[in-house]
Design a protein around this nucleic acid. Structure first.
Lengths: 205, 205
DNA sequence: AGACATGCATACTGGTTGGTATGATTGTTA
DNA sequence: TAACAATCATACCAACCAGTATGCATGTCT
């Protein structure tokens, strides 16, 4: 007999919900469909979550938040050149961008666009992730300005906001076109913008 | 007695559907709620449209498409400097960006993110609008390259794709933050990018 | 070992919603 | 003017789906 493990069950529910939301959005996500991808039933779901909304919140807090911070923010800490760091992360994102991700885009942006006008708590949770993301890039750029690798005449906060917006925009464009080449085309523009933030020192002999 | 005008009725239905979709998305859009914003009933709706999907398609074709082309593409035709033209359009967009638009973002992007993984016809119709938009900017940039106002070393197609992605990204960020200042912050980055496309001629005396 | 809480499964319900069937009114044509 | 088509209103239905009520195991504490 399989021993019932509540933590594992909760993770399975979250993961299945995450995938379902990623494909159909939160409002169109069907609980029965989520459960169909597990061996569980509604009893398990409503034992761990009081309702559908709370399940959605948990997906944001426990999965999407960790993914974004882990992929886009943490690698920016303690890096020599923030521009190079950002470019590396973007290149890595381009490589890991595959199938399901290509079809359904960025989970954070999807939920942001769908739920922010509908549910205030959703909006705040998502916005908080964007704030952390923005702070991560902004602080890295500021540090780059003091280190001399980033142009001193740009505003780190505004630049960070634009970088994130451009990333989400590019992913969204590729998602709609269902063509990864659109992502790469967009990426060229993003790379150009990032390069324009460099402080190029002219050596004097 | 009010004479029943089928064309006008159709327009009323489309407009009400457009607003409802803009707020709740297509899948969550409720036909009863749409009709509640008009003086009409289901009889009228199903006389003009066979089903909800077709109504959604008509909103894309008859409203969103015309809005996008009229605002972002047509003004690019026959303009001296494409960079200046794009900047003017963006500034105008920033001014006209108000309330409902701030809360709900870009209707095209909303539908794109929601429906492109769900319904293939939706995706194609939306993608076609993006293609027209991209062509408009791309052709303007190409013309600018021959005229000498745009740097010859950039790829117009890729640049156009990135510009649109950045616009949609900025609008989406502002929508989620529900703060128009986020839009302006993002706009700074976009303006910087557009300025970087200029071909600056150094006068020789 | 008995009492109790935890972790689920099963069966059911009430409300919502897209869609339909029918009919009434108006305009148009023969 | 009679027949017919167009334009809508009203009433209804069937399906879907979030949420609930109940019960049954398994582990734990005393």
């Amino acid at each position: 007999m399989i021993v019932k493990n509540p933590d594992q069950t909760r993770k399975m529910l979250l993961q299945a919900a995450y995938l379902e939301i990623q494909r159909n959005g939160f409002q169109a996500a069907c609980l029965a469909s989520i459960l169909a991808h597990t061996n569980l039933t509604k009893g398990a779901l409503y034992h761990h979550f009081p309702n559908k909304l709370t399940l959605g919140y948990a997906v944001v807090d426990d999965i999407i938040r960790e993914d974004i911070i882990g992929f886009w923010v943490t690698p920016l800490e303690d890096c020599e050149n923030p521009i190079d760091c950002l470019l590396n992360i973007i290149y890595r994102a381009g490589e890991e961008y595959r199938q399901e991700y290509e079809r359904c885009g960025c989970p954070l942006n999807n939920l942001a666009q769908e739920m922010s006008p509908v549910d205030e708590i959703f909006r705040q949770k998502i916005n908080h992730i964007y704030v952390l993301w923005r702070q991560g890039i902004s602080q890295a750029l500021t540090k780059g300005q003091t280190d001399g690798s980033v142009r001193p005449d740009i505003q780190p906060e505004a630049a960070a906001t634009f970088i994130i917006a451009a990333i989400e925009g590019c992913v969204g464009m590729a998602k709609n076109a269902q063509d990864i080449n659109v992502l790469y085309k967009c990426g060229v523009g993003l790379v150009h913008y990032l390069e324009s933030l460099r402080l190029v020192l002219v050596k004097e002999n």
